[in-house]
Design a protein around this nucleic acid. Structure first.
Lengths: 208, 208
DNA sequence: CTGACGGCAATTGCATGCAATAGTGGCAAA
DNA sequence: TTTGCCACTATTGCATGCAATTGCCGTCAG
């Protein structure tokens, strides 16, 4: 039986990412505790962790709220991704990922191209990028990027993609796998950079 | 009156950074609670936050320990600093920091060159880098870098510096201020990159 | 003598009661 | 009518008791 705090964390995280907990909405400890069938203590710990992840903001004596992303936030986040993820791709290519990892990445590409559901695609996309980051060999990168990886999910980048942009994104993924297979750091890094910049161009230019 | 959890966090953080709490040592909740004159609840919250910062590792049902840095950890950390801090310096130069920030940086340089105490220098150095990161305008960078900024403090990079390396470090700081004053992003980024690489060369090549 | 099994102590994890704080609404005075 | 103040309420923060899990140590079989 897992720890109650972990289940609370996972549940709340899912609620936020799925949009069930709207941005800006208040997250009362007592209310969540009742909903999840737990006491306030594990809920409180989960909110702390989500605050550290940047998914909620906790103000002293004022509780927790789901963060609302401004356009400036998205710009900052895509800048950081454009910095860190190409680095991860370069390192991964230099390390020559083993066949199992490459097969996993290819499988994720297949699944993404097959699926039509934006939410499903977003999840597979996260898994893809996470696998590349893991393949970089730097064990600190995953933790660093969790705080900036889920933002596009909330905003729903993939919903804004038209058919052309979506196809381009898929092609980027395929090309990245090729670059990793070839073990070409510069190629892999460049593709990843283009991939992030292309993703940034959509949501940032619009709304708010 | 500040929150007890915050004081616990600040105290424990200071204990770890100063070396009072040795690397690998166990941090029992009850023991710390008694020492700090608090209950276990705020201590527990502080340990969670320190765990998110990467300063301690918390294992389920097994408590918290001060993390012990391996040579591989230091390599990873300096790689990330070499990526993120030059970016921060570039952005800061592009934004043209106002006179107050430049004066603060200069004052920190003065204080560092005046001081002879390694611990004092380390603190001033942290303040200097923190100010540059703040000047970048990206409000997410500080949080990202906290998890990798304190590692050199624990290892005590400055203790390993001979007189020549120390002087070079000071010169880097001065040059960085000049580059920021000139508003030259490429210059600022290059100096910062050299600064980090030079700092990495020392501790990584030795010990463990 | 070595290995495994079982009970035991210590510590974390969770629940709940109480205190403290911030937001809110009403009331009174200008 | 508006503004400032005060009490009230709802919520967070902290303390403490109890349950659950882990690691340890002694014992016993092989």
């Amino acid at each position: 039986m897992p720890r109650a705090a972990d289940t609370a964390y996972a549940t709340l995280r899912q609620m936020i990412l799925s949009g069930e907990a709207a941005a800006g909405s208040r997250l009362g400890e007592a209310e969540l505790a009742e909903t999840l069938g737990l006491s306030r203590t594990p809920v409180r710990e989960a909110l702390q962790r989500l605050g550290a992840d940047g998914l909620v903001e906790v103000l002293p004596h004022r509780g927790a709220r789901v963060v609302r992303w401004s356009r400036a936030d998205l710009e900052e986040i895509f800048e950081l991704r454009a910095l860190l993820e190409p680095y991860a791709a370069e390192r991964a290519a230099r390390r020559r990922p083993d066949a199992a990892v490459l097969a996993e990445l290819t499988a994720l590409c297949d699944a993404m191209e097959r699926s039509g559901d934006p939410a499903e695609i977003a999840r597979l996309n996260s898994a893809f990028h996470g696998a590349v980051i893991d393949a970089s060999g730097n064990r600190r990168l995953p933790a660093l990027l969790t705080s900036v990886m889920h933002a596009p999910l909330i905003v729903g980048t993939f919903r804004r993609y038209d058919a052309g942009a979506l196809a381009r994104s898929m092609n980027h993924h395929r090309e990245l796998v090729a670059a990793l297979t070839a073990g070409d750091p510069d190629w892999a890094g460049s593709v990843m950079r283009a991939h992030i910049r292309a993703a940034a161009a959509g949501p940032i230019s619009e709304e708010e």
